[in-house]
Structure formats: C-alpha cells, structure tokens
C-alpha cells in the first residue's frame, strides 16, 4: 500500500514572543495552506510505502531528506563536485518526488536536504510518526510507541520538536543574503517559545501546542526530537522517566536496556522516547536545563518551557 504525502515549501511568517512577525520558510500540507513551523505532522503505519511529492514555492531550489530512514538519496553536485543538495531537487516553481518505506516505528525528522544550514534553520523541518503494526488510533489498548514487547504502551502521547531561531539569520536569508555566526536568541518547542508553548493547537503558522494534560496514573509517552543545530537538555520537574527508545530504536528488545532519567541531553537530530506515569494532580514544569535556553532573547521566562497538567 502506498500513502501519498504532498508537501509544499513556502515562505511565511512566525510570531515569537515580544517581537514583530519574522520571515521563515516552512512546509505546508496543501496548496492553499500557509507554511507552518514545524511542518505538518504525519502518522503512517510501519511498513507503509510513502510517495512524497514536494512542490517548491521558495525563491531557490530545495529538496527533502528523512533522518534515520534507510533510502538511497540522489545527491546533486555542482561543477566543482560539491554537494548542492543531498537529494533530488525541486526547482523554484517545480516539484520533486521521493519514495520511502517507513520500515520501522518511531519519530523521524523530515527536513530540507539543500543548504540545510540555511534552509533547516529557516524552518524546513517536520516529523513523521511511524506507528507499529497493530496500532489502531481508535483502540487505546493498541497504543504503543514500538509494538508488543517493547514496554512502550501509553495512554497519552506528546511529540515535542526542539528548535532554535536566529532572527538575524532569518532576516538575512529572507533578504537573499548570507548569514554570519549562528547565534539563536529564541528556542522553540513545536515551533513556539514559552509562554506560547502552552497555548492549544490552532490554525496559525505555528499550529502545535506543547502543553500536556493527563490523569494521575496514566502512562505518558513523551517523544522528544531535536531539530535544532545545538544540543538541548530536557529536565522533567517532579518526574523521573524511563528512557524506552533512542533515535527511534527501542531499548527493550531481547533484553531490557531501558533506563531511568530525570534530565536528558539530546544532540542535534537525536530523539528520545520517555515513558512515565502521571504523578499526583498538579502542574509539572518541563524545561531546557541549558538555562540560557529558557529565555526569549534575554527575557525570562521563555524559550523551551512547557507544562504538564495532571487533573
């Protein structure tokens, strides 16, 4: 069975706390919709063949790669033999198609494969969640991150995509220039900085909230993936979680190598699945323990902070 995913790369604008709208480049899931940060989240089944069509409405070429997925890229090189794109290019106004098999369950980044230092920073990234065989969205008893025997059954699931925004880069690149030193001043969860992280999902260019709600005793699967260029360290206040997968490789297979952590560092591009039981009623802060990342520019509180509410 083949699932078609149609993506458009477009320019748009995002809102960061305390400043004017900022130009960005992002993916959208339909011709009529605007670009969004991060790109549309897709749910597919393990083993599905994905036929992804990328239509390029940006001023320059772009392309698409998936991280952690086996495929044969079709890189494009310039006259000097240097990479221009890590995969088939879509020219401005044109499109490109990619065929990928979602071979294993987990959370995977899709992102630009063309000049990623500029295009990924501009916002061309999103995630695809691959569901294990047997997963049925209508039947909570089938819900797990990685299927039977992996100890990843959950009642509540949340995907948190970490990112950074260097506003000078955005303005420079949108104006056709070349950026200099990378020095982001905004740090994002699902494309938003606190306090916007705790707002609900909406129809804006930053549609995904990062707030969480659960009842005491519910099993929460927190799926954190780092789309930024820097390392980030998530700390869960009042909760010690079990790390059940790293980079979408489940840790409980023939033996159980899952382990418990209160705070965990993610390198760029990496992901961890953290499983924990919702504690007593109340609010719990989840934040970046790199404490220079809990500000917007210099304003505290901001950046990578969200709240779990147990009621």
């Amino acid at each position: 069975m083949v699932t078609n995913i149609d993506l458009w790369a477009k320019s748009g604008s995002i809102i960061l706390p305390g400043r004017d709208p900022l130009p960005f480049w992002g993916f959208s899931g339909s011709a009529g919709a605007g670009a969004q940060l991060p790109g549309p989240r897709y749910d597919v089944m393990e083993g599905e063949s994905l036929h992804i069509t990328l239509s390029n409405q940006l001023p320059g070429t772009t392309s698409l790669v998936l991280s952690g997925v086996e495929f044969t890229p079709q890189p494009v090189k310039d006259g000097q033999g240097r990479f221009v794109s890590y995969n088939t290019e879509a020219a401005p106004g044109g499109s490109a198609a990619y065929d990928i098999v979602a071979a294993r369950p987990g959370v995977f980044l899709y992102q630009s494969g063309t000049a990623p230092e500029t295009q990924v920073q501009m916002g061309l990234y999103g995630v695809i969640v691959v569901r294990p065989l047997g997963y049925d969205p209508g039947n909570p008893s089938t819900w797990s991150g990685y299927g039977p025997g992996t100890g990843t059954e959950f009642d509540v699931e949340k995907v948190l995509v970490i990112g950074e925004v260097d506003t000078a880069w955005h303005e420079e690149i949108a104006g056709g220039g070349t950026p200099s030193d990378y020095d982001p001043g905004y740090f994002t969860l699902n494309g938003r900085s606190y306090p916007a992280t705790v707002d609900p999902d909406d129809a804006s260019s930053q549609p995904y909230g990062s707030g969480m709600a659960a009842a005491p005793g519910q099993r929460i699967l927190l799926r954190i993936i780092n789309a930024g260029f820097l390392n980030h360290t998530l700390s869960l206040d009042g909760v010690t979680a079990r790390v059940v997968a790293g980079d979408s490789w489940p840790l409980k297979t023939s033996i159980d190598t899952t382990y418990r952590k209160n705070t965990i560092t993610l390198g760029s591009g990496q992901s961890y699945d953290l499983l924990f039981t919702a504690p007593a009623t109340g609010k719990y802060v989840i934040y970046d323990r790199d404490l220079n990342h809990v500000v917007n520019a210099n304003q505290f509180p901001g950046g990578i902070i969200t709240i779990l509410e147990v009621t």
Partner: peptide
C-alpha cells in the same frame, strides 16, 4: 546499502561551512 552516494554531514549544520 544499494550503490549510490550517501552524504555524511554534521547535524550541527552551521558547522558545514
């Protein structure tokens, strides 16, 4: 895997300069 060219890069993309 299959024949081809597979780019290796630093995911700290600002270091690919």
């Amino acid at each position: 895997p299959a024949p081809g060219t597979y780019p290796l890069y630093n995911r700290n993309c600002h270091k690919n300069m």
